[in-house]
Design a protein around this nucleic acid. Structure first.
Lengths: 227, 227
DNA sequence: TGATCCAAGATTGTCAACAATTTAATATTT
DNA sequence: AAATATTAAATTGTTGACAATCTTGGATCA
């Protein structure tokens, strides 16, 4: 892996990057709604910068999967259809599988901070704290990908997760069965600790696919999709 | 390096995109070497544009996996180590598997232009035309991904393929066994036509993994890697 | 000698004005 | 009145100038 990542950390923040972070928050919080056009001049004025950094930030967010550029028409907050969301689930499944595979190869019997996270999630599940569980769950998956040690894989998965959050502002927080989800985590964790890379892959993949099924099941009873 | 003709500008699109395409060619042809810093002012002058479009083009290429940005230091042509290349093979394997899976689901018994491509590759293999085979092979894989019908998947795989080409200017053209490679293509094709999605996935994945092994075998007898 | 510090040069980051293009609002034609 | 053409307004694309930052080469000091 390259040392370039460290250099990037050293000297933080060009204005464009700060604007990009700000915009990411605006988008993920829904203040910039999916499908909406991002008016460079307006946003620039609001943030107290010129159009340049806003433009560059928009391009940065393009590679993070949050923004779509159309020539001479502008930058739009991406809009994810239900069909795309399902597609994304599948991609995330195979990539998460690969992450678990790599994690198992590199763990050396030590699951690091994953064990602790798992315990805290169990507590959250027991006391039915869905919000807490959701936050920890995000962290757990991040941590898992970090263990795989591939910045490329991490970028790809992050991008997919970003896109998932764009699905109709619907936070995918509703977690029907935290206990079951966490049992799956436990199994993945065990496979990683035992160094069983192929099993870890299968379990990781299945875990995301199970999430997809949970979503589909929940979606069936909601309103009809119009696009 | 020639200037960009204005005819292309009017017909096509924004200057930044034209510059990006030009830069992509320069990079993939090795005229901009891996690891090299891209001097905005110099390149802008050579292409007859201002620094703006060059900057934007660099950012575009960042999301295509060809360029790395470091704040206040510039845009660098990415450099891929051997370890990274092997990692990329694995990622490409699972994504290609997913592409074959989707292609099998959507094909409906018709493999479209893939059959024709396969035939032409067989001829190229028989007459030992490695260059011809290499070109057709790229097309075959592109076509395969197109059949999957996921622009997201396509972008991801394209990016990985780009990065592979950055590995030490070594064109991965050397194909030790075209006949064997094409037999694998045939098997994938058959699975897609039969609509056997899981088999198509496995075969697609295995095909890329076989490419990885061929590379590793070939690399064993070359010089020692120094990074 | 070798390391450290400082200034000059080179290079990237930001800005504001201008050009090209799209979008809207209005006028024209049938 | 509906459809089309035309013009005006809004918005993005591009440029060159200036500011901030990094890199260099040389002077200073132990």
């Amino acid at each position: 892996m390259s040392d370039i990542d460290l250099l990037a950390l050293r000297q933080s923040s060009t204005l464009s990057e700060l604007v990009a972070d700000k915009m990411e928050k605006l988008i993920l919080s829904g203040q910039l709604a999916a499908g909406e056009r991002i008016n460079e001049a307006v946003l620039a004025k609001e943030l107290g910068v010129s159009r340049g950094p806003v433009r560059e930030a928009s391009m940065l967010l393009t590679s993070r999967g949050l923004v779509e550029f159309i020539a001479f028409r502008g930058a739009f907050v991406r809009k994810i259809s239900r069909a795309e969301l399902l597609e994304i689930y599948d991609l995330r499944a195979v990539l998460t599988g690969q992450a678990c595979h790599l994690a198992a190869l590199k763990a050396g019997g030590d699951a690091g901070p994953l064990n602790d996270l798992h315990d805290r999630m169990e507590k959250a599940a027991d006391s039915n704290k869905a919000d807490k569980y959701y936050t920890l769950n995000l962290k757990f998956h991040e941590c898992l990908v970090d263990m795989a040690g591939s910045s490329r894989l991490r970028t790809m998965i992050d991008s997919l997760v970003n896109e998932m959050h764009l699905y109709r502002q619907v936070s995918l927080r509703s977690h029907p069965d935290m206990a079951q989800s966490n049992r799956e985590h436990r199994a993945i964790l065990d496979a990683i600790i035992q160094g069983d890379a192929e099993k870890a892959r299968e379990l990781g993949e299945a875990h995301v696919r199970a999430g997809k099924k949970r979503f589909e099941a929940a979606g069936a009873e909601t309103l009809v999709e119009d696009e």
